[in-house]
Every structure is written in C-alpha cells, then in structure tokens.
Amino acid sequence: MIPFEYRRAADAQEAVATVAARPDAVFLGGGTNLVDHMKLGVAAPHMLVDVSRLPLTEVEETPGGGLRVGAAVRNSDLAAHPLVRQRYPALARALLSGASGQLRNTATTGGNLLQRTRCRYFQDVTTPCNKREPGSGCAAIGGWDRHHAVLGASEHCIAVHPSDMAVGLLALDATVHVLGADGARSLPLADLHRLPGDSPERDTVLAHGELITAVELPPASAMTRWSTYRKVRERASYAFALVSVAAALDVDDDSGVVRDARVALGGVAHKPWRAGRAEDVLRGAPATEESFRLAAGAELAAAEVRDGNAYKVPLARNTIVAVLRDLTEARR
C-alpha cells in the first residue's frame, strides 16, 4: 500500500471539491471494499476523503410517500428500519443476505452500490485484468470462470457485480442522488451501473468526484410490500451469490392474471440486471409456473455461457420460477 493522505470531510461540498480537484483522491465510506483493495494493490489512491461521518445518515419519508436513504446509512440500520421492513421487504432481505453482521454494521448505502467485482483476477495484481489495468487483457476468460457473467459480458470483461442490496433496490425502481463539482443530479439506479463493453474499468456512469448522497425509493405499493429477495449460495451464509433474484408480483385475485411484475437478477452480469424481458412476458399472463418458466426463459435466451458458469442459466431460471411461485403462493 502506498502512503496516502487522510482527510475527514467537514461537509459533502467540501468532500466533492477535494476529490474532484485531485485525480488521485477517492472517497472513503465504510471502507470494507476500499481498504481491502488498497491492501491488495488493486487501488492506490494518494488521498482518502472520509465521508462516513457526514450527516447523510437519515432514513426519512419523502413528501410524496417514498423513502430517502442517506448514503452513509449503515447496511444493518437500513435493513432494520421499520419502514424498509414493512414496505420494501426485497430491500431488507437483500441487505440481510449480504456479507456478515460485522460488515453490515460498517458498510454504507453509497459504498455498497459502488463496491467492485469479486472476480479473482481483478483482485490479483499479478494477473492481467482490463478492469484494473485497461488494455492488459482478461485472465478470467479461459480461466476460473465459475462465478462470472452469463448476460451482458464483453470480450474485455466477464466480471459480475457483487451487491445484493443493489439488486433489491433495482427491482424497487430506486433513484440515486449524486453531488458533483457542478451541482446535484439524480438518476435512476438502473442507469448507474454499466455493462463492460470496451471500457470495463468504469463500473458506473459517475464522474470522478461525484458523490452519492442518497438513494430514494418511490412510494410503496401493495406489490412492493410483497416483494422478496432470494440468494442462492453454496455456503449457507457469508458468501456471495451464485445467482440472486429480487421480485415483486401484482396478481389480480379474481382472474389470477399478473397485472405487474418486477424481476431483477444478481450474480449474472456486470451490473445488477433488471429482467425486463421476463417482466414483459409476465404482464397479462396467468400466474402459473408455466408462465414463470416462459418469463425466465425469455430473459435468459440471450445468455452466453462458458465452461465454468453454464450452470447459472438453469440455476437462474429455476430460482426465478421458485421466487415467483413463492410470491404467488404467499398471497393466497
């Protein structure tokens, strides 16, 4: 780890101005991913600007009935928040399935969204990686690809995004609030993360120096109150997802037809993956296992598999079906 300067920011504006002015400066939130990367040499900033103690720790209802979550809210506090538990169970469940109790007490909302892939080759500075060192190649291609992407990958990068929380938020149509040197802006969470294409070094669309200040959830509906998150993993806890599914269903009680649906996937792509094709198939279809299977198939039709990760396609299919089936049965 190279020597670096540490600064505790007095407020968000100062933090943004400091980082924006220095290409070798980065924000420090909970640090659970950044400190890890600095030890490995994956990240080598010359300055850390600590934003973990900024007053971004509130979870509050918005005038419109939504929920605004400060970027420094700890994962455990967000999961335990009564409104999250009541209105957005997919988010609470996603948070609680991530990492460990200790890490959730440290990790922040903003930091969770910006955590980087756990691709082994990305984390090992002795191997080529286009994400870590653009143009050096991708060691995962032709290597140990068991945990890698089946959707949206490129010839330059096949890494997956590791966050559970982001998958829950994506299914709930969350918005991200960002402060930059030029002022504040908001964008749908769906637009935050990128596919790798030919520039996998960029995980998100944020510019250097832009700071996530809050995440906002739209008003809850009957559907989001019944949302859920299912994480599939080998170890029963404290493991990243092989595949995960966040979903919500709105089914007409009389006709048994799906009025609306939300499906998002984790562990399958470079970004949290909104399963729009599956949702399209579901809307207007009977809430039956057959429909769920068709929907899953429609989403996964574009999957491209490798030696080690081919299992993810049937696994994602089965998990989507299982989650939708459980949601349907729970409403009966």
Binding site: R120, Y121, W144, S237, Y238, A239
Partner: peptide, 20 residues
C-alpha cells in the same frame, strides 16, 4: 495456464460457517 492458486483467500476458499 499460470500455476497460480486462484481462490487464495477465505472469501473464495469456503470453509463451513456457523449457518452450515
């Protein structure tokens, strides 16, 4: 290709946890 141990930490070399 390289003879390297790829999963050389406890995040990717899983040992049983409490929940198992």
């Amino acid at each position: 290709r390289t003879g390297q141990v790829v999963n050389d930490d406890l995040a990717d070399y899983h040992i049983a946890a409490h929940a198992d």
